[in-house]
């Protein structure tokens, strides 16, 4: 049955996504399914049944005029998009996952950059050592982390270079691949949600150690240790957030390869996610989450008003809701 479904989907993949075409597809699918079932009941093997059903399918050319797709059928050779193989798709998902993981480590290292200096300060204050050695160590640590982060970013850029064609060339995926992607994407969803929640919590509550320690003692050293914990929390939190969206992005990139104007663009539920009517809003919403995180961190670190800066999260949620209801619209559905 799967083979028949794949056959039908591939026959229709490049046709315009109209009601007539959808209806034709579902009707033909129904007839094929009925026929297949009866052949199986008659004792045919799966292979035989599939063979008969497909050979009796006929030719879509016959439907061209009734469906008003004569133009689209003749235009097909020009817009022929290369079909990605299953291996390519899996390789891209794993490459992209690895690249995002590396990026998240790089970002975490960047956030950790102040830690060596605070630690050095701690050592100097707490152990009353000389300044020179701790600072030399701190600077070394700083540059090692910075160099590592830059190396990671550069390597990633080079590694992902070969996948640029996904965005540049006309490529598409078939129904079986889309189905596979949808399944793994659904399977990953709950894990990602946990990662996201923990990441956000770490970022939101990173100031707690500083605040608690600050209220308990006036001593500088514990306060600085609190600050180190703060950077650790933010670093790990951001790393988790970056990772949480990682695979999802790879799946979406692949699932969006098919043009939504064709039947093939219908393989995905993710097409039904919110789209924005205004291109500026669309761009803005693309960077909405990172922007809010950025504002939150900048505001908090510049003013140290941690007791109030969390308010930005509920405000952001309200703003997102307002923007979605003003400019957003649900995309096409299956």
């Amino acid at each position: 049955m799967e083979a028949i479904r794949n056959y039908l989907e591939s026959m229709f993949a490049n046709l315009p996504n109209t009601t007539e075409v959808q209806r034709a597809k579902s009707e033909l699918g129904q007839m094929m399914e009925d026929k297949y079932q009866e052949l199986i009941e008659e004792g045919k093997t799966d292979n035989e049944a599939v063979g008969i059903v497909i050979s009796d399918f006929g030719n879509l050319d016959e439907l061209a005029d009734t469906l008003g797709i004569r133009g689209a059928m003749q235009a097909q050779p020009q817009i022929q998009a290369r079909l990605l193989t299953g291996e390519e798709v899996k390789e891209y998902v794993s490459d992209d996952g690895r690249a995002t993981f590396a990026t998240s480590i790089g970002v975490m290292l960047c956030i950790f950059l102040p830690i060596p200096f605070i630690a050095a300060e701690c050592v100097i204050e707490g152990l009353h050592t000389g300044e020179r050695i701790p600072f030399a160590l701190a600077i070394t640590c700083f540059f090692v982390m910075l160099a590592a982060a830059i190396a990671i970013f550069v390597m990633n850029g080079i590694k992902m270079e070969k996948w640029k064609y996904l965005k540049r060339d006309a490529v598409c995926i078939d129904y079986a691949t889309a189905d596979y992607l949808q399944k793994v994407s659904d399977a990953d969803r709950s894990g990602h949600a946990v990662l996201k929640v923990v990441g956000v919590l770490l970022c939101v509550f990173c100031f707690v150690p500083v605040a608690v320690i600050g209220s308990l003692t006036d001593n500088d050293v514990p306060a600085m240790i609190g600050a180190i914990i703060l950077f650790l929390c933010v670093g790990i939190g951001v790393m988790m957030l970056v990772n949480a969206g990682a695979k999802e992005d790879a799946y979406k990139t692949l699932l969006r390869l098919n043009s939504p104007a064709t039947v093939g663009g219908n393989y995905v539920r993710s097409q039904a996610e919110i789209r924005y009517t205004n291109p500026t809003v669309e761009k803005f919403m693309g960077v909405f989450n990172p922007t809010i995180l950025c504002i939150y961190l900048c505001w908090s670190f510049l003013t140290f008003d941690w007791h109030i800066t969390w308010i930005i999260w509920p405000i952001a949620a309200v703003v997102r809701y307002l923007i979605n209801s003003t400019w957003g619209e649900k995309g096409g559905k299956f």
């Binding site: 007539e20 034709a24 009707e27 033909l28 129904q30 007839m31 094929m32 009925d34 026929k35 009866e38 009796d56 399918f57 006929g58 030719n59 879509l60 016959e62 439907l63 005029d65 009734t66 469906l67």
Partner: peptide
């Protein structure tokens, strides 16, 4: 759909099998 295509096959004593696309285009 399928019932019609099946009956055509049966009545014609398997001498004519209507293609699915032919049948659907006739319906529309």
């Amino acid at each position: 759909g399928y019932e019609i295509s099946k009956k055509i096959r049966e009545i014609s004593e398997e001498k004519y099998v209507i293609k699915e696309t032919t049948l659907y285009s006739a319906f529309t």
